[in-house]
């Protein structure tokens, strides 16, 4: 299978196998306008299997979500057909509508339009605090995490 290299855009490599489509979803790219390639279950020396996403003509996607759910993924910005910049993912200080509060006493359980807002408490333990009820949750780089919306 051959997917052409890109001249200008972004390549997200080393995505946990099986979650390439979830990454595209979370990045909220306009799929109608941008050319996107998602390669699933590619061979990886590092991880055995991996997914990989290439997006043409986009370099400014919000990578905060990616840092939260797949910290092992690597991001390369491509310009003129070469890697111009490698981005190290880091945990976002604040995430909105990515994590859902599971505390049944939290107001977000009844106020449908309230955004789910979490603040990073401790990067080492990957702990986040709900803005409303202060409930703490640990997000361990997991696409299937029960708190992800």
């Amino acid at each position: 299978m051959i997917v052409d290299s890109i001249e200008y855009g972004i390549v997200i490599d080393h995505i946990t196998a099986g979650f390439g489509l979830a990454v595209i979803d979370q990045l909220a790219i306009d799929k109608r306008k941008n050319t996107i390639a998602c390669i699933m279950n590619a061979t990886s020396k590092k991880y055995g299997r991996k997914d990989l996403v290439k997006i043409v003509n986009v370099v400014d996607v919000d990578l905060a979500v990616l840092g939260l759910i797949d910290p092992n993924a690597t991001v390369n910005i491509i310009e003129g057909g070469v890697i111009k910049k490698k981005i190290n993912l880091k945990l976002p200080d604040k995430v909105v509508n990515v994590i859902k509060c599971k505390n049944p006493r939290c107001v977000t359980s009844v106020e449908a339009n309230a955004p789910h807002i979490f603040h990073l408490v401790d990067a080492e333990s990957r702990e986040y605090r709900c803005e409303y009820c202060d409930d703490l949750i640990t997000v361990k780089g997991d696409y299937g995490h029960e708190n992800l919306r």
Binding site: N103, V107, S109, E111, E131, Y132
Partner: peptide
């Protein structure tokens, strides 16, 4: 005053 936590913040 509200039974749900964070209601005053909303």
């Amino acid at each position: 005053r509200h039974p749900k936590e964070g209601a005053p913040r909303v």
